[in-house]
Nucleic acid binder design. Sequence first.
DNA 1: GAAACGTGGCC
DNA 2: TGGCCAAGTTT
Length: 377
Amino acid sequence: MTATAEGKTGTPLHRALKGERPTTAADHSRELATVLLAWYAENRRKLPWREHPTPYWVFVSEMMLQQTRVDTVIPYFLRFVSRFSTPADLASAPEEEVLKAWEGLGYYRRAKNLKRAMEQVEQRHNGEIPTSYEALIALPGVGPYMAGAILSIAFNLRYPAIDGNVQRVFARLFALPQPSGSPALQKSVHQLVEAVLPSKAPGAFNQALMDLGATLCLPRDPVCSVCPLRETCAAFQEGQPTAYPTTTPRPHLPEVPRIALLLRCAGEIAVEQRPTAGLLGGLWQLPSRDLQPSQPPDKAVAAWLLENEIASPKPPRYLGRIRHTFTHLRWVMEVFEVCPTSFVQGQGLHWVSPDELRQLTLPKAYHKALALAGLKL
DNA sequence: GAAACGTGGCC
DNA sequence: TGGCCAAGTTT
């Protein structure tokens, strides 16, 4: 074991946890927990799901919070648990309604998994969120983080809940060299958290680490001056807290050229449903298609109209360009308006009124596209 | 291990 | 603007 592989050894806590002073490791762990829990008692964020941390509320909030900021989640959470108050409510709700409640939050598979998970809770667990790691992680959409968060927060059981905040806090505390987000960092942090996690208040401890990461140990500008762990933080002692966790630059996003058609006929609008799997699976959109980089958008529109046997007295009107960036690609979508002479059926096209359109779940990119034509949902 | 999977805020 | 990042999971 080299210092490089294990991180640098600047603090008593670190030396103790590495086993150099085994008789004091437990003492240092207790001290860390004590300091952290005292800080948390004074500085914990007031969040809706913390008011009544029922297993269901914790479950819903954790699913929404995956890769999503607290401020973004709060209004969605309040609406969601108001509309779907219990696991039974959610299990029996139509999926379209659940997706609509999720609209704008992103990662829509979470919404489907959440509903499926509650169906399984109803069918296999007597309507109660299970209290074992094995049963939880078997539910769709529940991984190691969520299982640990539910067990520790809702049931006060001693399980780690290691999210991005905790990884960053520990990468700095112990000057861990593994790259951000890597399985290697995940493993190192898990071992360290396991060594430090108290059995007394594991839920508070896990949330304290997350709150510390979200309010003080920030990615860009950490507020070390008021951090309760400053003295035992290896990155702070090195003078370079933001050097951890180490990062690797991301490759340039591929750009996907694309057309979208606003077909309007007698006050109705044509929409189509995306395939169930993959990007924005099962959501609705204006009729669209990806283009080859060399393909002129206006020619692609003409070809699309021809293929679908759509006659239009006036030529398509160009409405504008929508650029929409996802995690792994970027759409550059040219939007055209067409007024066909009649409703065209088949080809997966559905004609809906504006009121009906409002019931469907549309990705953000299409809200932008509709706004080009002055249509707001 | 790597890639897919949404969106909004920040600089 | 463009890149980074956020209470991760799945394939």
